[in-house]
Design a protein around this nucleic acid. Structure first.
Lengths: 345, 345
DNA sequence: CTGAAAGCGCTTACAG
DNA sequence: CTGAAAGCGCTTACAG
């Protein structure tokens, strides 16, 4: 690794000041054409590129945003990230990514690490622990010291900032309604998600649909499986002792695993038991039967959050901030794990 | 967003010099205990955190690494990324991620963007186009100007740097051998990967296994499907006109799609046709039948590449660099899409 | 047309 | 024990 080309070094070569080189490279009208030409040519030949750290220090802008998510091995977050990366790059921003692994402590140290001028703004989806403990001081500190935050998916109402969310209530309502309309009456909800806010909304939507269609609630088939419990045992027990003709999986694994367990126990999908999954995975096309799911448009969610963040970063200082919460619409993708809807014309 | 706490600001509060504040906060023995105490306390109460951009400029180290990959919506790369993020964070490094979407141009502009002091080193998996056009000037320029590079998975022999790869030759050999040993004789290879280096190695491994077991080669069932061609048509045509009793999919989608197409055409898996996929996906457990695959240990690959990169970044300057190429071992994960191996004791 | 100065936020060798 | 100076690489208002 040889020495990098700097303004100083170029200045020495031509025996001019650093200021002159700087202006020459910006093609300033203050500088003579002859000087500009020779300096620009030299810079080009030597791959001169302004040091972005020095510029960041000067402008107090880094053209970098941070992303903190609970997980990266979850297809839902991967798609969101893909949307984030896309827009950020389009707008000339770099993206620094940190995974909190569901831990509050990790989230706090990460934010502190990013708080010292490194990033212009932050996109965050809260860790499970953060939501559980309702600890948001680190977020407020970031907003005070470093820049805007946009929260996505796993958000908190108590932090005053922009948010982008999935319409979890309606989403669950829609899924439940679809099952009811295709003839299901004993609809189970299964989840391993350890996340208060979102689960509550989804369960609420589910309950509301049951209520509107006058279907009695059976608490025993609302199966929120806590970490440490064995998924297979829980599902088997439920299938053996409760009447179930449909299962809504609140994330991909719950849905697909429940389906496989039901099939192993001799149930036919969707005739005996229908399956709907939250979150669309490409693989749901390839299971037998293929799985009906709710497309949460996660790429779009990532894009939207990033657009909001960058517009906040780039808005003129002292603009009175109005915070908005955007809700991303969802769509039901019908496949073979649910019975066909009989249209009545 | 209020004004951030800086050394200058603290210095003014206590009417001392910036240097004194700096030393006090580093608990320097040069400074009196009284001064240190009051300054440290003030700093703590005001969430003082040294500006990392200023430090980066000073140390010419940013404690940030860059990652450039062809895709992020590919589970193989997501897992590698997960390994990268893990190690980088353990060692106190931030990660800037850029997706090249298989485009050389994107790769070049990204590298230029990162070349100006922003990152201490780079992890890269080449875009398809880069490999096809054999254009590596941007990589060499980065090494000259910015820091070490470690290439992973999609590498080029003509760039002199550290590399981490999957043992593609042996991997394909192993898969082919397994099929042969379970009684298959007409083994097809299917791929949509548009990637010269890796495909060649895999095909070579496959051919070598056929040769060693005296199985004749049928070029017509080596099915490398170029972009623009319809996957389904290609596979159907092959199944209809060629004798095939096994398919090796060089990536997840080729394997699972081929399986579904074969099933639709009435073949039983694995009795009529066996399936093996490169790259382990969690979803292969849930297909019917579950899919036998090659685990490439991608998380480990990401970790290894990152460890090498950081050790290169942190090695004392002027160390004579010796470049290594690490090969990650693969394992065959037997599931139900291949016939059982009959062990002969 | 060119350059000296001040500054972004920090550190460290040196003087006092 | 404290501070002035130089410097990391850059820009820009101001002087000449």
């Amino acid at each position: 690794m040889k020495k990098r080309t700097t303004l100083k070094q170029i200045a020495k070569v031509f025996n001019v000041s650093i200021a002159t080189v700087s202006k020459a490279l910006k093609d300033s009208h203050e500088i003579s054409v002859a000087t500009k030409n020779k300096i620009q040519e030299y810079a080009k030949n030597n791959n001169y590129r302004p040091n972005s750290i020095a510029l960041s220090l000067l402008n107090r802008k880094t053209k970098t945003i941070g992303v903190i998510m609970p997980s990266i091995l979850n297809p839902f977050f991967v798609k969101i990230f893909s949307g984030i990366e896309h827009i950020a790059n389009d707008k000339g921003y770099n993206v620094i990514t940190i995974v909190s692994h569901g831990k509050l402590e990790k989230e706090i140290t990460s934010i502190h690490m990013l708080e010292n001028g490194l990033i212009d703004g932050l996109l965050i989806s809260l860790s499970e622990e953060t939501e559980a403990k309702q600890h948001f001081g680190h977020l407020e500190e970031f907003i005070d010291n470093a820049g805007p935050i946009v929260m996505f998916d796993r958000i908190s109402d108590s932090v005053n900032t922009d948010k982008v969310i999935v319409d979890d209530f309606n989403c669950a309502y829609k899924a439940t309604e679809h099952l009811i309309k295709t003839g299901c009456k004993h609809i189970s909800v299964v989840s391993t998600l350890d996340n208060v806010g979102i689960i509550k909304l989804r369960i609420d939507g589910y309950l509301k649909a049951l209520e509107n269609y006058n279907i009695p609630i059976n608490e025993k088939i609302i199966n929120l499986i806590k970490p440490g419990y064995d998924f297979e045992t829980e599902i088997k027990t439920m299938l053996d002792y409760q009447k179930v003709d449909a299962i809504i999986g609140l994330e991909e694994f719950s849905a697909v695993e429940s389906m496989v367990i039901a099939q192993d126990r001799g149930y036919t999908i969707p005739d005996d038991i229908s399956i709907i999954s939250f979150t669309n995975s490409d693989f749901f096309k390839y299971t037998k039967p293929s799985i009906t799911c709710i497309n949460q448009h996660s790429v779009f969610m990532g894009k939207t959050a990033t657009e909001i963040l960058i517009s906040k970063i780039e808005q003129p200082p002292n603009t009175e901030s109005v915070f908005e919460t955007k809700t991303i619409k969802t769509t039901l993708v019908e496949r073979k794990s649910t019975k066909p809807l009989v249209h009545t014309y």
